[in-house]
Design a protein around this nucleic acid. Sequence first.
DNA 1: CGTGGCATCAGGGAAACCCTCACGGATCTG
DNA 2: CAGATCCGTGAGGGTTTCCCTGATGCCACG
Lengths: 225, 225
Amino acid sequence: MKITPAKQQRILIVDDHPIFRKGIAMLLEHEHDIIICGEAETAAEAMGLVEHNDFELVIADISLKDINGIELVKSLKVLKPHLPVLVLSMHDESLYAERALRAGARGYLMKQAPPDQVVAAIRQVLSGELYLSAAANLLMLNSFVTGRDSNSKSSVEKLSDRELEIFELLGQGRGTSMIAHDLRLSVKTVEAHRSHIKTKLGIHTAPELVRAAVEWVTRRTGRGD
Amino acid sequence: MKITPAKQQRILIVDDHPIFRKGIAMLLEHEHDIIICGEAETAAEAMGLVEHNDFELVIADISLKDINGIELVKSLKVLKPHLPVLVLSMHDESLYAERALRAGARGYLMKQAPPDQVVAAIRQVLSGELYLSAAANLLMLNSFVTGRDSNSKSSVEKLSDRELEIFELLGQGRGTSMIAHDLRLSVKTVEAHRSHIKTKLGIHTAPELVRAAVEWVTRRTGRGD
DNA sequence: CGTGGCATCAGGGAAACCCTCACGGATCTG
DNA sequence: CAGATCCGTGAGGGTTTCCCTGATGCCACG
């Protein structure tokens, strides 16, 4: 049998879906050294709980009602710098994995992950290590290999002036021939630039390129990142 | 007070998040007349299970990996017309609640709902009634009162089910032929839908369409509900 | 003075786009 | 109930874009 551990690991779950919190709780039901002793629906609520209680781990969803989960991670880091945070995300968006880690999270996992993987992630972060899902891991490695610090997220920085110019126009919904006309270039030239942009950003299809451009533009103009 | 029921209510859960399925299971743990006896991650998997087993209820998420949950409801209606389906969704019911019911669902609930409400919804649908969350209910009433359906909506709401589905895929950076393959349609059909979407949204070029789709998707998934 | 990135384009085949048209089914309307 | 309208599915065919393979000057860096 299991003897009572000297110290039970107290966990706070921050997620605005009650059922999901139940799911996590169920996963940890038979892990007797781990105890869910806090649930929060919003970042504000989570901050309040963390301030007045001691937890060994916070599990936080990315999309909360009040603010972005990434911001929550940052705020938690200010309040309790040594409290580890495991970030969960609904979508497999690799964009968030890196942002989350930069913000100070100790692990990143998507909600599609199988139960045993979730438990493994929790244990790994509790033991002081980092946890990355396989997919996120690959992306990280990739960005370490290809270049070092300011790379994969700001790989847009690798674009030349002309390429960036065209990338922005793409993000505004301009088509190839439109751009050629705007810049008084040949359509062929714009096509060449598009091709180079795709190579530099590691994008393989035209629609993906437009999507990346639109997201970059809206992020730049939408809210200060 | 509780006698063993003559017939346990067998439920199938369709959701691509294992933890969420666990959460539902936990909710129903103490409801002895209800038993989860099937889990599926994809619509295809769900169809297979329904075909070879008997369930009293299907609980289905809207956003699945293979096809839209609305389409799953329609397919289920063809296969087993009398099998009730309770639809769960993460995000705004304004868009999906009405579509789900039209497709033949017997209830609509968002994932943020508190546990007791989820159980209530399940019981209500099992007993043959319709279930709508308060918010969705209000919207229904509203649309009955104001006149018929969509006219001065956010214009995305004017899109048909199929069109919306394709619009979302476009917003994820999928190309025409990819979408055709995903949905097992002819490329020509996808092109036709694209054309209709453009008309309904007042868009004139292909890149603008992609931009609109990307912005809509990121806005919807970035800001919760 | 080569090597390589940058910016500019051409050719050509494949794919995507766009317009017109069509048809069966649902649903609304008179 | 008959007609109108929308929805979902596609074909045909002309135009545009995509994408791969070059190619030319330019300029910087070693």
